[in-house]
């Protein structure tokens, strides 16, 4: 296991290096002068010079790159152009809100996916199975930027059950979590169904039934735990997509997380903050993927990495 961990960490180094490089290059992709775009054409020459110096754009690209790498290694992602605060501090302040929303979305996804997945697998080709399949297709085809307003329309404006947007109470969390969790629920449901169908056909389930357990008990007590392993893995691997999806969901519900911060930074043309947010989300994705990979072996004792 330690050997595998070291191998994976070694493989991660060039990826992290590459991600930082891509994010560094972003500001250099801007057509024209980034300083002029950030300050506007009417800015004074002295102001432009000052910002150029602050963003280190007055140095050779190689030096800029070296300093950027060094900065990232030390946790210094630069200073926000608008708030004049360190980028990392701004991001870290928004982390709890995004983590709360992501956690709630995953819980919603599991709450929908597990019962539906189990039902469809236990009653394959039944109307319940077909309905679940259709719901999954609906979940996959419904973009979150539509589902969000639709949920607001039904549950906030129509039924008055939850607030339209904002942050602070459990009620505020329901609609954003549903919006973000629906797509994942569809993916997990399909995954659980096919994985459970495979497990149900295994000998140990038949043996459990032969020992007198009802089919329902055999599936719920024995097969389900095994079929959840690939589901949890997919859940881990989907975490990055969830974070990326938070950019839209948090915008719809004015949720004060990293996603909303990214959009605010883009709107304000605060490029150091944009770079910081993108880098943060990408590095979180890489890390969670690694953790998922390692947990996989812990969850399934049959899997041993050499």
């Amino acid at each position: 296991m330690t050997g595998y961990l070291l191998t994976r960490l070694r493989q991660m180094v060039p990826v992290v290096f590459g991600v930082v490089t891509v994010v560094f290059l972003l500001i250099h992709l801007i057509p024209g002068d980034p300083v002029e775009i950030m300050l506007g054409e009417s800015a004074l020459a002295a102001q432009k010079e000052e910002l150029r110096r602050e963003l280190r754009l007055d140095r050779p690209v190689a030096v800029q790159y070296g300093e950027f790498l060094l900065g990232v290694a030390k946790g210094d992602l630069g200073t926000s152009f608008r708030s004049r605060e360190p980028v990392l501090r701004e991001i870290l302040r928004r982390v709890p809100a995004t983590l709360l929303l992501s956690g709630a979305s995953m819980a919603v996804a599991l709450l929908i996916a597990v019962p539906l997945g189990v039902l469809s697998a236990m009653r394959q080709h039944s109307p319940v199975d077909h309905l679940s399949g259709f719901l999954a297709m609906l979940g996959l085809s419904m973009p979150n930027f539509w589902l969000g307003p639709l949920l607001i329309l039904i549950f906030s404006i129509g039924l008055g059950l939850f607030p339209v947007s904002g942050y602070g109470t459990a009620g505020h969390l329901v609609l954003p979590a549903l919006t973000m969790g629906a797509g994942m629920a569809a993916i997990l449901m399909r995954m659980l169904r096919s994985s459970l169908l495979e497990e149900i056909r295994q000998d140990y389930v038949r043996a459990a039934c032969a020992r007198g357990l009802s089919r329902r008990d055999a599936v719920l007590r024995h097969a389900l735990a095994n079929s959840l392993i690939p589901v949890l893995t997919v859940m881990g691997l989907q975490f990055g997509a969830l974070l990326s999806g938070s950019i839209i969901t948090e915008t719809i519900f004015s949720w004060p997380g990293i996603g909303r911060l990214t959009v605010q930074a883009i709107e304000a043309r605060d490029y150091p903050l944009v770079q910081g947010c993108i880098l943060f989300i990408a590095l979180c994705t890489v890390t969670v993927n690694l953790v998922t990979d390692l947990l996989y072996s812990r969850l399934d004792p049959r899997i041993r990495y050499e």
């Binding site: 493989q11 891509v22 997509a241 989300i281």
Partner: peptide, 24 residues
Amino acid sequence: MRLADILLAFPGILLAIAITSVLG
């Protein structure tokens, strides 16, 4: 393969958001 790994670290439309935010 390394390049693919790097690009896949940007989940969903994150890279597209990053690129369009700077390209316009």
